[in-house]
Design a protein around this nucleic acid. Structure first.
Lengths: 227, 227
DNA sequence: TTATAGAATGACCACCTGGTCACCAATAGA
DNA sequence: TCTATTGGTGACCAGGTGGTCATTCTATAA
């Protein structure tokens, strides 16, 4: 498949400090400028290696990007899976809160990877564009829809809801919410950029409350679980 | 101000067919590739003029972009103002529907301008970045907040709502909804790309219904106006 | 110590960009 | 006819890109 990462044995055999240095330089440049505008010359400079060496490690710019993208995607999958599994027994709205909070944590813990991930989501800026985007959106959709299905099954949200509409609305709010944490120009109403965890959590509460009213299953009061 | 368009008298004195041709070439290239990646060489080729002439008409790439951006912004302002004024007497949710429908109309009628406008909104890709983004977001926020304030004043939505949260949620759903009409990679759940006006309207109904439940003022039944 | 294999280097390449300006063509006015 | 002005051209420029590869360096084994 086109988006296979192409790090060579040579790269994998470097000492850990050098691998780390190269990886950080790449994340830095790709997160700052996206795929197309990122410059291998800049990455080389930041990493303190020769350009020829970098091309030996990854074959091409797209190969290097694929390597970084995979790391970002795996981190996203990890945090989503972790929070989903840990919140299995909670109600839909509580789960939604936790997913948003985990997203904020991800953005704060791995700012570079988060920027790369969301830049791809919003702009499609990547090599092998179709495959990467298909993969990203398949993952995202699968996750949100399973959450909604669980919520309907557990009686937290109305069975009459159209799952597609609900997934659409949830997804765009979640994406924008997280993106506003690191893209200041999108952050004109909630001041999420630079917000403390507590402030972000305030906003999470408010947003989820809004969704609660809109989605809640009246005929079966939403299960409350100890907070 | 930095974002003043810089079309020269020379451009304005061209015959209308040539002006149109140059403008279309620019819209085509900027909408396809955004500001930074758009190539003056490509625009020149598409317009069938010399590069020197193009630089005489607009001074620079940023000058040309400012010209095009202004046209896009004016179109957006126009449709928003028109739909807001025409729906002055309707309830909040009906207004929301009409605004979304007008947005879909804008996207269909001026696909190039819509792409340019939303690309700036989502990526900030433009010259004089701070000024343009400030202007865009000021307009957007002003519009949505005035809509919400009207809705609260008329008793359609709850006064207890936090206007910021509500504006945030509305804005990201509206933006994503419109963007999905022309960015296929964002269009994985609703199939808006290539949707008929009727299909889009179906989705609008569903989305607004969701918001209605979430926002509606219980103590004063939302005013129904003949549909 | 020498030879070899592997790793690394950086000058070079073709291609692309936004922008410049000497030159040319057309037109109007004297 | 000559001159001045306006409009237009495209070769050229400096700077940047991703990528290549002849050469050099380094580590290891014999």
């Amino acid at each position: 498949m086109g988006i296979e990462s192409t790090e060579t044995r040579m790269f994998l055999q470097l000492d850990a400090e050098k691998q780390q240095r190269v990886l950080e330089a790449a994340i830095d440049e790709f997160s700052d400028r996206g795929y197309e505008k990122a410059s291998m010359n800049v990455i080389v400079q930041k990493a303190g290696i020769s350009k020829g060496a970098l091309f030996k490690y990854f074959g091409s710019k797209s190969g290097l990007f694929a390597f970084v993208y995979r790391i970002a995607l795996n981190h996203v999958k990890d945090y989503l899976r972790t929070v989903r599994d840990k919140s299995q027994d909670e109600n839909f709205f509580r789960r939604l809160e936790k997913i948003m909070a985990a997203g904020v944590d991800f953005v704060h813990r791995y700012p570079g990877l988060a920027r790369i991930y969301y830049h791809i989501i919003f702009t499609g800026d990547s090599p092998y564009k179709d495959e990467i985007l298909k993969e990203l959106h398949r993952e995202s959709l699968k996750f949100i829809q399973s959450l909604i299905e669980d919520g309907i099954q557990q009686g937290d949200i109305r069975p009459s809801l159209d799952p597609k509409t609900t997934a659409f609305v949830l997804e765009c709010v979640l994406d924008r919410f997280l993106q506003a944490h690191h893209l200041q120009f999108l952050d004109h109403s909630l001041r999420l950029h630079g917000a403390s965890a507590e402030e972000s959590n305030q906003w999470i509460q408010e947003i989820v409350e809004l969704f609660k009213r809109g989605l809640e299953n009246d005929s079966k009061k939403s299960r409350e679980v100890d907070k």
